[in-house]
């Protein structure tokens, strides 16, 4: 009887162990399937970009042949990697990079300054201002786009880099994100620096900014992706090759009667690379910032 009692926990432990292993297998399989679903369109894009027959690409879509290439070629990339001419995708990529870098760098400075003043500045009606900033966030970009086109056109900015940067540098979302981040940092930091005679700009630049890497990373990625994926706005305000970004340029492959899948795929792969690098470079801080804000609520 006692043997029986003593031996009872063992099968239970085994069954718990088995169920844990089983659960892990199920989890792994599920993660693998989800990863496959997420990655397969990107893989298909890459494979299609290595095929040089647009009709073949279309014919292969919908079958497993979309994930396989018999004679890989870089001809699509060679055709579009120009800095002048009708397929100046190198130029368009460069244009997009310029717009992205200037938008993100100036956006980080302006939004963080605004967020800092709202958090710690001695500004009258701060609460109302903050409420207004949040209220602005709910207005969709599309609803103000036409008046904005008219404004920019009257300012003589049509078909410039500036017109693609200026309207989107200050954003209620990023001001609020910075505000929230700065407001969570200890008040003592501000008070100690103030007692030492530091100006508000010095406190912002030398104390709060170095502590804000996660917020900076988050805003950089969000702003970068937003700037990179802009399509409607640059379509409306660009006219020539001069400042045309790659997102608009890719649309040229989708014509009235025909779609150049081969070159469109290669251009899409090129378009993905910088934003992927941006994400990989900042993703550690990006994730930690999101986790942090979730915990702190």
């Amino acid at each position: 009887m006692s043997d029986l009692v003593l031996s009872q926990p063992a099968p239970l432990a085994i069954s718990r162990g088995n169920s844990k292993t089983g659960l892990r297998i199920v989890q792994t399989v599920c993660i693998f399937i989800i990863a496959l679903v997420m990655i397969s369109p990107l893989f298909m894009l890459l494979i299609a970009s290595l095929k040089d027959d647009r009709f073949r690409i279309l014919a292969d879509m919908g079958s497993f042949r979309a994930f396989w290439v018999n004679d890989p070629t870089l001809s699509n990339y060679r055709e579009i990697a120009n800095f002048s001419g009708e397929l100046a995708y190198g130029r368009y990529l460069f244009n997009s990079l310029v717009i992205l870098v200037v938008t993100v760098v100036s956006g980080l400075i302006i939004n963080s300054m605004a967020g800092f003043v709202l958090a710690w500045g001695s500004l009258r009606g701060k609460a109302i201002l903050l409420a207004l900033v949040v209220a602005l966030y709910v207005i969709p970009q599309e609803s103000i786009i036409m008046p904005l086109v008219v404004m920019m056109s009257r300012a003589g900015l049509t078909d410039t880099f500036a017109v693609q940067i200026l309207p989107w540098v200050a954003s209620p979302l990023y001001v609020f994100l910075f505000y929230q981040f700065f407001a969570q940092l200890p008040k003592e930091l501000y008070e100690a620096a103030e007692m030492d005679g530091a100006s508000i700009f010095r406190i912002y630049r030398s104390i709060y900014m170095p502590l804000s890497l996660p917020a900076l990373a988050t805003v950089s990625i969000l702003m970068g992706i937003e700037s990179w994926n802009q399509y409607l706005w640059p379509t409306l305000v660009t006219q020539t090759d001069y400042a045309r970004p790659i997102a608009v340029a890719i649309a040229t492959f989708f014509g009235q009667d025909s779609i150049y899948w081969d070159r469109a795929m290669a251009a899409s792969v090129l378009m993905m690379i910088p934003v992927l690098i941006l994400y990989l470079a900042f993703q550690r801080w990006f994730v930690s910032s999101f986790v942090g804000s979730a915990v702190k609520g």
Binding site: L232, T235, L236, Q239, T240, R244, V248, A251, F254
Partner: peptide, 12 residues
């Protein structure tokens, strides 16, 4: 001076 507009966004 040529002004290009993508086919799908021409009306906009």
């Amino acid at each position: 001076e040529m002004i290009y507009a993508p086919h799908d966004a021409y009306n906009e």
